[in-house]
Each structure stands twice: as structure tokens, then as C-alpha cells.
Design a protein around this nucleic acid. Structure first.
Lengths: 119, 119
DNA sequence: AAGTATCCGTTCAGAAATGGAACCTACACT
DNA sequence: AGTGTAGGTTCCATTTCTGAACGGATACTT
């Protein structure tokens, strides 16, 4: 009898956390997801664009996009039917993530200056 | 002579990224790190407090705290010498992370309401 | 002084997530 | 038929995380 496996993953638990920061992280708490959302803000919308921009594996990109769509941060629209092609666009929920992104941007700008990557 | 192993990890690469958001993520881009910082804002400062509050393994907590100290987000201060005890407190760099945290909080509050965790 | 508790970690094996690279589908172009 | 492009999926080795136990150092109790 497979009843719920105790703790599937601490990740999902976060979605129910009392703290709204934790709940946010249950959505965008891994390294790639925020960067995908950032790319969306920068106008990117296609699988290949994200893959090229971020250099993550297609596998992971695929699962992250799927998750973002499920959670209502992005929506997947067909922009071509003949060769089935889709793009991913921010929903309102996604666009409203802007302030958080700006917070991260400002902090990075101030405290994480670019070093000339080694000699 | 193994000079740098090609790609240690895509994580570290982020620290050199042109985008400040990515550079921020190279510091606080994993699920636990932001929560540790949040706990600091909530007044927590000791190993046990973080561990109890977050429920992450001591191993990971230990490595995250070490990393946050190295990166200058937290500082480790002895508050007792006899039994060597330390607490972790936000530096200015850490405190300045507040706006980003607020961004995440607001977003979570608005878009990730708590559901009564199933029956 | 022995026993128990507290705090702060470290070590280890198994589980889960990730990275790299190849493969597949569908269509368009030539 | 062959080549190119977009969007994924599959497979396996490597990395990271979890869970649980173990350890050192001191304090509290008896």
C-alpha cells in the first residue's frame, strides 16, 4: 500500500509554509527558475532562447517550464500550428514578480561586482 | 596537472555573470540559503535555531552558514568562550538583502495563499 | 565524579536532482 | 532523400541532499 511516502521532498512542504517568503521559494526556489523568469522579462520566450541564454540542460529546462506553466507564472501559447511551436509568456502572476527581481538585481549590483574572470 | 576541472559547477560561473540577478543567485540561489537569511531577519542566530526552524539537515546547514560567512553575508561571532559558542549575524551586506526579501514576501503573500493542508 | 543535556558540528550510505550528450518527432526547404 | 530547425525526451554518470548516527566540549544535576 503506497500511502504517501512520508516526505516526498521538503520542497513541496514549503508551499504550505506559514512564511510567504518560503511559499515563494517553493515556486522559484531553484537556481534556474528565477533566471528563466528573468529571461522572460528580457523578452525571451522560446525554448531555444532560454537554453542558449542559460546553458542549462534541455531536460531541466523542459521540467522548469512545465512547472512554471502549472503554477501559473508562465503560459504556453502556440504561435505556429503547422510545425507545432510554442512560446512561453509571463502571466500577470509572473509579471508581478518584477519587484522581487529588482530587489535581487539591486543587491547583486551593489554587492556582487563583476571581477575580471581570472587572468 | 589538473588545473581547474573545466566546469567546477555552473553555480560558480554565475558569480561572473553579466546579470546582477544571476550574481545574486550565485550567493543565495538555493532553497535553504534564503530561508537562513530570512531567519536572521527574524532574529534567529544560532545553529540550533536554524536547524529547528528549517528542518534541513545539519550537514547542509553547516555548509550554508560557512558559505554565507565566506561571502560576507553573515558574520560568526563567539558569544561564549568557555563552551565555544557562536552566533551568526547579518552584516551590512546581509541586511541590505531586505528589499529583495520583501519582494519575495509580497509576491508569496499575494500569489501563494496558504491552503489548508489537505484533510 | 558520573550521568545527562545542550550546542555545534562531522561522517557515511542511500536517495534524489542535475549535467552531458544523444535521440526522436514534426515540418519546411532544396 | 537529405539537411536544418524547434521542441522535447531518454539514458547514464556525477553531484548534491537527506536521514541518521557519531563526536567533542562544556554545563547542570545528583
Amino acid at each position: 500500500m503506497e500511502r504517501k511516502p512520508h516526505k516526498v521532498s521538503r520542497w513541496d512542504d514549503l508551499a504550505e509554509d506559514w512564511c510567504p517568503v518560503a511559499r515563494s521559494l517553493s515556486v522559484i526556489g531553484d537556481r534556474w527558475t528565477i533566471l528563466i523568469v528573468r529571461d522572460c522579462f528580457l523578452g525571451k520566450s522560446r525554448f531555444e532562447e532560454f537554453q542558449t541564454s542559460l546553458g542549462l540542460t534541455r531536460h531541466i529546462l523542459s521540467s522548469r517550464l512545465k512547472r512554471l506553466v502549472e503554477l501559473g507564472v508562465l503560459e504556453k501559447n502556440p504561435y505556429s500550428l503547422k510545425p507545432p511551436r510554442y512560446d512561453y509568456r509571463l502571466t500577470e502572476k509572473g509579471r508581478d514578480f518584477a519587484p522581487a527581481l529588482v530587489g535581487l538585481k539591486d543587491w547583486g549590483k551593489k554587492y556582487m561586482p563583476i571581477r575580471k574572470a581570472h587572468a
